[in-house]
Amino acid sequence: MSLTIHATAIALNGQGVVIIGPSGSGKSALALQLMAFGAQLIADDQVVLASDGPDLIAACPSHITGLIEARHVGILNADPAPPTRVVIAVDLGQTEPDRVPEHKTVTWLNHKVPLLWGEKNPNFAVALLQMLKVGRSLR
């Protein structure tokens, strides 16, 4: 079973991040920032999610593999990442009101994924990179 969602996804060190949010919220821009630090593009605009045992996998529809839109620049080529296990979801349509937020999740295909709200956070990309490198405190 699979599900195609309006999202962008990147991979870093075998870990996938799915970025959701309304049109124009900065999904591709966040992906480009993360790619500048070494992440690879899984998919832009459409992400195919599939259940693989205990894992949720993000992949790209074949017709858009290796392509990402940079607003006011155009469609750019990118080194595509293979299908990757999703470890974090980001919602750019939600602003995090708490300085140290409670842990949230989103469920896709019966898989709970840690969820971060990232709207209007100028340091979000670097904080997300640090989280991907060494995790998030359980406190």
Rank of each mutant, 00 (worst) to 15 (best):
W117P: 01
H111I: 00
R136G: 12
L132G: 00
S137Y: 10
W117F: 08
K133L: 06
V134L: 14
N121S: 11
L115Y: 06
K133P: 07
T107W: 05
V126I: 15
H111M: 03
K133N: 03
T107S: 13
L132I: 08
K112Y: 10
L138K: 14
L109M: 00
A127F: 02
V126A: 02
R136E: 13
N121R: 10
Q130D: 12
L128R: 06
K112E: 15
K120N: 14
L128P: 04
L116D: 05
L138C: 14
A127Q: 12
W108R: 04
N110P: 09
N110C: 06
L116Y: 08
L138F: 11
V126C: 07
E119K: 10
K133I: 15
V126S: 06
L129S: 02
N110V: 10
L109F: 01
V126R: 08
H111R: 03
G118V: 06
T107L: 11
W117T: 05
V113E: 09
L132D: 04
V126Q: 08
G118E: 06
S137W: 12
G135A: 07
E119G: 00
L138I: 14
K112R: 15
N121M: 12
Q130A: 14
W117M: 06
L115A: 11
H111W: 02
L128K: 03
V126P: 03
L128F: 01
N121V: 09
L138T: 14
Q130G: 15
P114F: 01
P122C: 01
K133V: 14
K120M: 09
V113W: 01
V134T: 14
F124K: 00
A125R: 00
L116V: 07
R136N: 13
F124G: 01
L115G: 09
L138Y: 11
W108L: 11
E119T: 01
L109I: 04
A125N: 01
K112W: 09
W117K: 10
A127N: 11
R136F: 06
N123D: 08
S137I: 13
V113I: 15
P122A: 08
F124W: 04
K133M: 05
K133D: 05
E119D: 05
A127Y: 01
R136I: 14
W117S: 06
E119Y: 05
L115Q: 07
H111V: 00
N110Q: 10
N121W: 05
W108I: 12
L128T: 03
K120Y: 05
N121F: 04
W108D: 09
K120I: 07
G135L: 07
T107A: 13
K120F: 08
P122R: 02
L109Y: 03
N110G: 07
E119S: 09
N123Y: 05
L138R: 14
V134E: 15
T107N: 12
W108Q: 08
W108C: 11
S137N: 14
L129T: 13
N123G: 11
Q130E: 08
K112M: 13
N121T: 11
N123T: 07
A125E: 02
M131Y: 05
P114Q: 10
N123S: 10
S137L: 13
W108V: 12
A127H: 04
L138N: 15
F124N: 04
N123Q: 09
L128E: 01
N110D: 13
L116M: 10
R136Y: 08
H111C: 07
L132M: 03
A127E: 14
G135T: 09
L115V: 03
H111S: 05
F124A: 00
S137F: 12
H111F: 08
T107I: 13
N121E: 12
H111N: 03
L115H: 07
